[in-house]
Amino acid sequence: MTDNNSDLYCIGCGAKLQTTDPNAAGYLPESSLAKAQSGESELYCQRCFRLRHYNEIQPVGLTDDDFLRLLNLLGQADALIVNVVDIFDFNGSLIPGLHRFVGDNPVLLVGNKADVLPKSLRRAKLRDWLSHQANANGLHPVETVLMSAKNQSDIESLMHTIEKYRNGRDVYFVGVTNTGKSTLINGILKQTAGVSDLITTSRFPGTTLDRIRLEMSDGSGLIDTPGIIHRNQMAHYLDAKDLRLVSPSKVIRPKTYQLNDEQTLFLAGLARFDYLRGPRAGFTVYADNQLMIHRTKLETADDFYDRQKGDLLQPPRQGDEFPDLARVEFTPKVDSDIVFAGLGWIKVPAGAVVAAYAPEGVDVVMRPAMI
């Protein structure tokens, strides 16, 4: 029996293996540890085993101090920092103040999940938009790359770009939860070493629990880090069965609604959008194709939500604990996106007076229109 396996770590999530506390990171039974030590099984903790084989998640808490400690290590290392963001949830996948943690290390910005955006959107235009938004948030990447972690040719191109900037140094992959960092590294491993699905991946926030170092041929490392948890993302308010709605896997089909003022759109029961004042206009919703949109009159919207939340307006589901919706009002001067963190966005024409609602704690922001 041991809880001091200083040289044994789960290859799925990076947690230090231990056999004493079933509720802590890195736990596995002594018998399983013995099999792993003898080479009869792979070094996966019980949490990763259940997640990989049964899609069951066992919560293991990482504190804000844990994430702060990991971020502080970035500036101490001599490395290339690869910041992976989710293009579908760009605002929600930025790490606040990342530029203050990386020190003098160069940052390569990788916009992942490009495959879910409409094919009509030109990549060059999107790349310029991402670079501009990164600069506005204090991050000045040496280059911005668009890709899909599911596309092997994109991964090959990314590897060439990484080699261009790393100069023999380690490469740290950083990002918030669910940006696809671990899927991306698995893709790199499959292409370079023929190893499939080594690192545990899932839609559940917080799957990777500690740094995972993978050696490269020259002795430097590819390092996967735990996803920084943004408490203001919609994923933290959803039942496990509904997480697919905030992590699209197929190309989203925008839906345009011609609205008169004093009309309301409900994004299932998760968010609400009111068109308060202005001429009849088109409003385009960018969200997962399975998310049901319901239109109603503003004057009856409150009553409609109270009666239908958890029923017609699902999710949330009946019996789920769900925060009240908080209201924010906007009047964009130019065509803009009203973004519901982790759920999607609505393109709004200049001059429209609108209000947006999301669960208390979920960010709702306005940005220059992406499309």
Rank of each mutant, 00 (worst) to 15 (best):
W129L: 12
K125G: 13
S93M: 06
A79E: 02
F88V: 08
D128P: 00
G168V: 07
S157A: 15
N151V: 05
A149Y: 05
L108H: 05
V85F: 08
A77I: 02
A136S: 15
V110P: 01
R122G: 06
L126I: 15
N91K: 11
L73G: 00
H99G: 01
T144F: 08
A149V: 11
P96E: 09
K164V: 08
I95Q: 00
Q76G: 00
G92N: 08
A124I: 09
N72S: 12
L126D: 12
N112E: 12
E143D: 15
S148C: 14
D78T: 14
L117N: 04
V145H: 09
N83Q: 13
E143A: 15
N135G: 07
P106C: 08
N72G: 06
Q133E: 15
L80G: 03
L108F: 07
W129H: 12
D89H: 12
D154S: 11
I155L: 13
L73N: 01
D65L: 10
F88A: 14
K119T: 12
K164C: 06
A79Y: 01
G75N: 08
R69P: 00
H160E: 14
V145E: 06
R100W: 01
H132E: 14
L130M: 13
I162Y: 11
T144K: 02
L71V: 00
Y165L: 13
P118G: 07
M147Q: 11
V142R: 14
V84F: 01
V82F: 04
L130W: 07
Q152Y: 06
V107R: 04
I95L: 10
Q133D: 13
H132D: 13
